[in-house]
Write a protein that binds this DNA or RNA. Structure first.
Length: 300
DNA sequence: GGCAGTCAAGTACGC
DNA sequence: GCGTACTTGACTGCC
């Protein structure tokens, strides 16, 4: 088990996902921003390595507007060496990487144009991981998409569209359960086309078909091929106390976390903490899990 | 320098 | 059909 946090480190004074407004797009600005983002990404990964945080989600804003028509710049070639250097660092430290395009990326959209734009966005994500020389255990997670007044049809459109994806994307894609498509629906997709399900514990607590945590683990973990996909990935958060249902906690809820560790036994997986205070909770989680045999398995 | 409105992209829902 | 909430941090214009 590796433990990690998404996108931003709050304590090192830089952000690996700085962006700017479309209106202020210039090639110079893009180059400058990407250079600074890559520098910060390296700094973040080095911080993580020294703290034993071995799982990290890279921000989709690493290269702003990469899939937008405004971007004609060959950032891939320009930053090839920097990407390769960061990839070498990730491999040397035994780290795991994920990426998560945001809500606008929908492969099951009824609108072909949205599907096309989503493909470009997904390709951009895959290119980053490819440029870093990471194997197919580095994943890109998306949701199943919209319902469009017909769940079955929309679920099948996902399946059909998955078959049309470039292999550079398909080999890295995983589907994550959410409020619209709970884990049972994602498993239907998974069994049909063979892409793994990334289990989101918090979404599952909000939307499910009655499966317990152990049942859910028993069902989604076999979809991850150890040689092709690596360990299963799991997103974890807990409810913000007093907040609207579905809002993420600001810091880790120790009791809930320990209970989750116990409920998820004996399955091994990599755990992403989607909690507002980021690395702070990741460090706390490492401490709380310090006697967990799964964590010792990696760090020893 | 600080605050508040706005931001590339979509869906769902209420009116 | 249109406006708004969803969710989020950061950019940007305005004072």
């Amino acid at each position: 088990m590796r433990i990690g946090y998404p996108c931003f480190n709050r304590s090192i004074g830089c952000t690996a996902g700085r962006t700017f407004r479309l209106k202020s797009y210039t090639e110079e600005r893009l180059i400058q921003t990407v250079a600074s983002n890559l520098e910060c990404l390296k700094k973040t990964l080095l911080y993580n390595a020294t703290k034993g945080i071995l799982f990290f989600r890279i921000s989709s804003d690493l290269v702003p507007f990469a899939s937008h028509p405004v971007c004609k710049f060959d950032w891939q070639s320009h930053f090839r060496d920097r990407f390769s250097e960061i990839g070498a660092l990730i491999r040397a430290k035994g780290m795991r990487i994920s990426m998560h395009p945001d809500q606008f990326t929908l492969i099951n959209s009824i609108d072909e144009k949205i599907f096309d734009r989503s493909c470009k966005e997904l390709l951009y994500h895959a290119e980053i991981l490819d440029l870093m020389g990471l194997d197919t255990s580095a994943k890109i997670q998306i949701h199943a998409g919209g319902v469009y007044n017909n769940r079955d049809e929309s679920l099948h459109r996902f399946i059909k569209r998955y078959g049309e994806l470039d292999n550079a994307i398909a080999r890295r894609l995983v589907v994550e359960n959410d409020e619209r498509y709970p884990v049972a629906d994602c498993l239907k997709i998974s069994r049909e086309v063979g892409l793994p399900v990334l289990f989101d514990v918090f979404h599952h607590s909000v939307s499910n078909k009655g499966e317990s945590i152990p049942q859910a683990f028993a069902e989604f973990t076999p979809g991850w091929d150890p040689n092709r996909d690596g360990l299963p990935m799991v997103d974890y958060s807990s409810q913000l106390p007093g907040g609207r249902p579905g809002m993420h906690a600001r810091s880790i809820d120790e009791r809930d976390f320990l209970s989750f560790l116990s409920l998820s036994m004996p399955y091994d997986f990599d755990l992403m903490l989607e909690i507002k205070d980021k690395e702070k909770s990741a460090l706390k989680a490492l401490e709380l899990a310090s006697h967990d045999p799964r964590l010792l398995g990696i760090s020893s």
